[in-house]
Computed example of a mutant assay.
Amino acid sequence: MIQQIIHGNKILAIIIKRNFQKDGIEFFTPDDFSQQLAYMKRPKGYIIKPHVHNIVERKVRYTQEVLFIKKGKVRVDFYDDERNYLKSIILEEGDVILLAHGGHGFEMIEETEIIEVKQGPYAGDMDKIRFEPVDKNQINTEDV
């Protein structure tokens, strides 16, 4: 299962559920995303030729992060660029999410282990603006 969280004309997130499976390779992100996300399933003996990556200067305007839910259960709250709450989803062990635009917050429903991957270098206080989370009575959760 693949789900995109879209607000207006922006992809806020791409979610790959733990049971997604497909032969070959599939990229889920548009070519212009600064963080690229793909799934690969190859048969035994398949060879990816050794390679090096060329030096290519890129301009990163938004920090896009990928979270791998290694263990547990977490609620992800989505906000637009003006910090207005939109909706929430629940992710579980094995799920993967790319956070591309808008705001987001998290509440651990169970003890949770997450592996995070994002662009660097980290810009410290310039990297993000923190704000108050949505009131718990307004949460609209959907299981993905």
Rank of each mutant, 00 (worst) to 15 (best):
Y39V: 06
L12P: 02
K71Q: 15
R75W: 05
T63L: 03
I48D: 04
E93Q: 15
Q35R: 07
K73P: 02
K49C: 00
L12G: 06
K71F: 11
G94H: 07
L67Y: 12
I97N: 05
L86G: 03
M126G: 01
G45W: 07
N9H: 04
I69F: 01
D81H: 03
I139Q: 08
Y46G: 05
E107R: 13
G105D: 07
D31T: 11
E116S: 13
Y122N: 05
Y46M: 12
F27C: 08
D81S: 06
M126N: 10
V76C: 12
K10C: 03
E26A: 08
E111G: 11
F27Y: 13
K59E: 14
A38G: 15
L91T: 11
G72S: 12
I6R: 04
G45D: 05
I55M: 03
E82V: 06
A13K: 05
V117S: 10
D32E: 14
P50I: 02
N54E: 10
Q64Y: 00
H104M: 06
S34V: 02
N84S: 12
Y85K: 03
D135L: 06
D80R: 02
E92G: 14
V74K: 07
M126W: 05
I5E: 07
Y79N: 04
R18A: 11
E107S: 13
D143G: 00
E110Q: 15
Y39M: 02
D127I: 08
E107Y: 14
N140D: 11
N84V: 09
I97C: 08
K22C: 12
N140W: 00
F106K: 08
M40Q: 08
R61N: 15
D80L: 05
V76Q: 06
E116P: 02
S34G: 14
L86V: 02
I129W: 01
M40I: 12
R83Y: 04
V60P: 04
F106L: 13
Q3C: 02
K49F: 03
I48S: 10
L12N: 09
D127Y: 07
E132L: 12
L86W: 08
N140L: 09
I48R: 12
G102D: 02
F28A: 04
G45P: 07
I69W: 04
A100Y: 08
G105I: 04
T141N: 10
E116Q: 08
K22G: 08
E57Q: 15
V144N: 14
G8Q: 13
D127T: 09
K128M: 11
G94K: 06
V66P: 04
I55P: 00
A100D: 10
K44V: 14
I115A: 12
F28G: 04
I139K: 11
Q64I: 00
